[in-house]
């Protein structure tokens, strides 16, 4: 299985993602943002970081970069596109995913492990994962998911909520909401479920000694599903 990780100026989780993808069997290649073509891929990943220094709005400049047209074409033809953290912000700025990631409610940069509840397994990203709750890492200043009421209704009606912040038992209530995100949303799909954007970093949870392995579960499932 071939994957491509796009590198923008200011991306800083691109290498971690490369290590994770290769560890679980992907033949991964790195693609520079100023290229116009993406090599043949089964999966495209927009990594975390601070593309273009978060100028204007997080992800807004990257969302207009030269490579993005190919990402949009790939996504619209049904290809799997995964955006993590800043990658999620870029996906909302391109319009591939609805809504926007606003500044965290209490103005703090949050860097910690959290639990997220898988809300939809009818897709390639979570299909064979047995667990209901995953322990993953978040590190962001703008992770506060927001959209209009009409969009929220459409997202809910189409089962587009992928993961929500919760406690270890899966209670995704306001008490377990780290950043003020609407409905505790930590990740969403597009309608066809081939595009996933999420704030938590599975690539940081792939080592049994350093972190935990719930990220491993995510990548193992992903390569099996493809």
């Amino acid at each position: 299985m071939k994957s491509s990780v796009i590198i923008f100026p200011g991306s800083n989780c691109d290498r971690d993602m490369d290590v994770a993808l290769k560890k679980f069997g992907f033949d991964n290649q790195m693609v520079w943002h100023d290229d116009s073509k993406i090599p043949k891929s089964d999966l495209i990943v927009l990594p975390g970081g601070f593309s273009y220094g978060d100028y204007l709005r997080c992800g807004s400049i990257a969302g207009k970069s030269r490579i993005i047209k190919s990402v949009i074409d790939f996504a619209n033809s049904g290809g799997l596109v995964l955006g993590i953290c800043n990658g999620f912000q870029i996906l909302t700025e391109t319009g591939l995913l609805p809504g926007i990631l606003q500044q965290n409610k209490y103005l703090n940069f949050i860097c910690k492990n959290v639990f997220v509840k898988i809300k939809n397994k009818e897709n390639k990203y979570f299909k064979k994962i047995e667990k209901e709750v995953l322990k993953l890492h978040i590190a962001h200043n703008e992770g506060n998911y927001f959209c209009s009421n009409d969009e929220l209704k459409s997202i809910e009606d189409n089962d587009q909520i992928a993961v929500t912040y919760c406690d270890h038992e899966g209670n995704d209530d306001e008490k377990n909401n780290p950043n003020g995100a609407l409905k505790n949303i930590a990740g969403i799909f597009n309608k066809d479920k081939n595009i996933l954007g999420m704030m938590p970093h599975p690539e940081r949870m792939i080592d049994p000694f350093l972190s935990g392995e719930d990220g491993s579960i995510f990548f193992e499932n992903l390569i099996e599903s493809l």
């Binding site: 204007l56 709005r57 909302t92 809504g99 926007i100 606003q102 927001f146 959209c147």
Partner: peptide
Amino acid sequence: KKLLANLVI
């Protein structure tokens, strides 16, 4: 419309 403002918010 295309860049400077995000009309969601």
